[in-house]
């Protein structure tokens, strides 16, 4: 059985499994974490204050927007997704996509059941 000559990249790793996308294990610094932490606390305060103001139909929209923003920065920084491979990013996206499919397609039934009563 012939042994391959070792090429520049370590052995014929066409599937790139042994060092996925040559991820360099970026280490997020405590200072970055602190900035994210402060932002999260500020957004919490913001959402509490916004709840006391009457903005009509925008109240839930703003509340969800702030919550989504907080969730996104937790995912990107605390959970390191900003520095991870594309596979991880697509996986996270797929999860939220499926959640949205569950909500919107089920909603399509409830919204259209009795127009005007929703």
């Amino acid at each position: 059985m012939a042994h391959e000559d070792q090429p520049e990249q370590h052995y014929n790793d066409a599937a790139n499994v042994t060092n996925p996308e040559h991820a360099s294990h970026h280490i997020v610094s405590p200072a970055q974490y602190a900035v994210v932490f402060a932002t999260l606390l500020a957004c919490t305060a913001l959402t509490v204050f916004a709840a006391d103001i009457n903005l009509g139909v925008f109240n839930p929209i703003i509340a969800l927007a702030i919550a989504s923003f907080k969730g996104v920065i937790v995912i990107l920084f605390f959970m390191h997704v900003k520095y991870q491979s594309k596979l991880i990013k697509v996986t996270v996206g797929a999860g939220f996509f499926m959640f949205l499919v569950l909500v919107t397609m089920t909603l399509s039934d409830y919204i259209s059941r009795a127009w005007g009563l929703w």
């Binding site: 052995y11 014929n12 790793d13 066409a14 599937a15 499994v17 996925p20 596979l87």
Partner: peptide, 11 residues
Amino acid sequence: IHRMRCPGMTW
């Protein structure tokens, strides 16, 4: 399937 294919085993 994503991470343990042998060398040369593309999708």
